[in-house]
Amino acid sequence: MPSFHPDETLLIELTAGQLDQATALVIAAHIEVCEECQKKSAVYASLAAEFLEQSDDTPCGEEILQALLSKLPEQQQNTPKIKLMPHQEDFYPQTLNDFLAAFPPQKSWQQVGGSLRQLPLAKGFNGATCKIMGVKAGHTIPKHTHKGDEFVLVLQGGLSDHRGTLRRGDFIYSDATVEHTPVAEMGEECICLVVTHGKLKFTGAFGRVLNWIS
């Protein structure tokens, strides 16, 4: 059970359809592995559904229904895919694997310095970008701040900073006021789903080089 959760505003924005696709992906992936946030989002979705049920009716043309009936396919979707597609992993939340299937990454994994690798995924309409990031076990991400909001969901391994240790399913939010030097736990590579609004700004000794290559 995760111990770091998204703010409930993010859960509501997800329900109301206000998030960009990159942020929606990371929140939905957390919800999938977090029973507590599932319960909350279920409530928010039922509120929206209740409003829908109480809505006025605006008639739809009969031709819409007829057109639909004439093109209903014979086959219904029933069997989930089992074989993993390129870049999918069995430990990823299904939400992420579904996204990877619908939108195969345009680029392959990129090495960033000696400790980091990243796989860029999608951009949101508001400039948010989403990527899968790997930090080698025991390695440190140099000290940095954030130009805009950053959301991190840990998928494997652990990542620590002054706020605590994040493990699988934990979600954390950082903004421009947070300066940190996250360290991956020993044992296995820490894999995260990361959404950034604006780039990281490295502040340590090697910062300038990393700002240039990341």
Partner: peptide, 8 residues
């Protein structure tokens, strides 16, 4: 944009 389906 592609919005994820919630897996509940």
């Amino acid at each position: 944009e592609h919005y994820p389906e919630l897996i509940v």
